[in-house]
Amino acid sequence: MNGLLLLALAFILDAVMGEPRWLWSRVPHPAVIMGRVVSALDRTLNQGNMQRLKGAIAVLVLVSAAGVTGWLLQHLGTAVTIVIAAILLAQKSLVDHVGAVAAGLRESEQAGRQAVALIVSRDVSASDTSATSRSAIESLSENFSDGVIAPAFWFAVGGLPGIAIYKAVNTADSM
């Protein structure tokens, strides 16, 4: 099946299913697994001498593991490819989080601040409605690139190995 068609189907699946809480409360999300691998590599290799070389080795291990995992999963068939790609896209989650800020602001300034605090790392305790809205829009812009556009691009270029490698490197970068 055409890669762009698979991507379109993954977007549709993500839009419909999003991040099912029942699933991710039972098994770790792939991004959580990637984060654990990055943390383990950091604890193991980010000490002593030759840290640059060790860092390069860590990236090589991370990229290789992600690429091989993506390649293996891709060979399990079209349905698996669509499901995994949908899991690695973050459009529904992003829409839900930013929508929660808008809904919160309709309720009260405090509710808007509480919702935006879940998606930004800065202190928003003194934010007014305008600052809360700007924070949500800035988060939407950055996360749309990191969580939707770039993964879609790398899936279109390299299938599941491409999107898996991108997500692993992006996770390492954010940590």
Rank of each mutant, 00 (worst) to 15 (best):
G3L: 04
L5K: 03
L6Y: 05
L6T: 14
L7P: 05
I12V: 15
L13C: 11
D14G: 11
D14A: 12
G18Y: 13
R26C: 04
V27S: 05
P28C: 02
P30K: 01
V37P: 04
V38L: 01
V38Y: 01
S39W: 08
S39E: 13
A40Y: 08
L41C: 04
L41G: 02
T44N: 08
N46P: 04
Q47L: 01
N49I: 01
M50Y: 09
M50H: 08
R52Y: 13
L53K: 05
G55W: 12
G55M: 09
A56G: 14
I57S: 07
A58V: 04
A58F: 02
L60R: 01
L62E: 08
V63H: 00
S64R: 03
G67I: 04
G67H: 02
G70M: 08
G70K: 02
G70D: 11
W71A: 09
W71R: 05
L73K: 04
L76P: 03
G77T: 04
T78P: 01
A79Y: 08
A79N: 10
I82C: 13
A85I: 14
A86I: 15
I87R: 12
L88I: 10
A90W: 02
K92Y: 12
S93Q: 02
S93F: 15
L94E: 07
D96N: 15
V98E: 02
V98T: 13
V98F: 11
V98K: 05
G99K: 10
G99E: 06
G99M: 14
A100F: 03
A100M: 03
A100Y: 00
A100G: 10
A102T: 00
A102M: 09
A103H: 11
A103I: 09
G104Q: 06
L105D: 05
S108F: 10
A111Q: 11
A111R: 15
G112P: 04
R113W: 07
I119D: 05
I119P: 01
I119K: 03
S121T: 07
R122D: 12
S130Y: 06
A131G: 00
A131N: 02
T132H: 02
S133L: 15
S133R: 11
S135G: 00
I137D: 06
E138V: 11
E138K: 02
E138G: 06
S139F: 07
S139D: 03
S139W: 10
L140T: 13
L140Y: 15
L140K: 06
S141D: 08
S141Y: 09
E142C: 10
S145N: 13
I149Q: 03
A150C: 12
P151G: 14
P151C: 13
A152G: 14
F153R: 06
F153W: 11
A156S: 15
V157A: 15
G158Y: 07
G159F: 06
G159D: 05
L160Y: 08
L160V: 07
G162L: 10
I163E: 00
A164N: 09
A164Q: 08
K167M: 12
K167Q: 12
K167H: 09
N170Y: 05
A172P: 01
A172I: 02
D173Y: 13
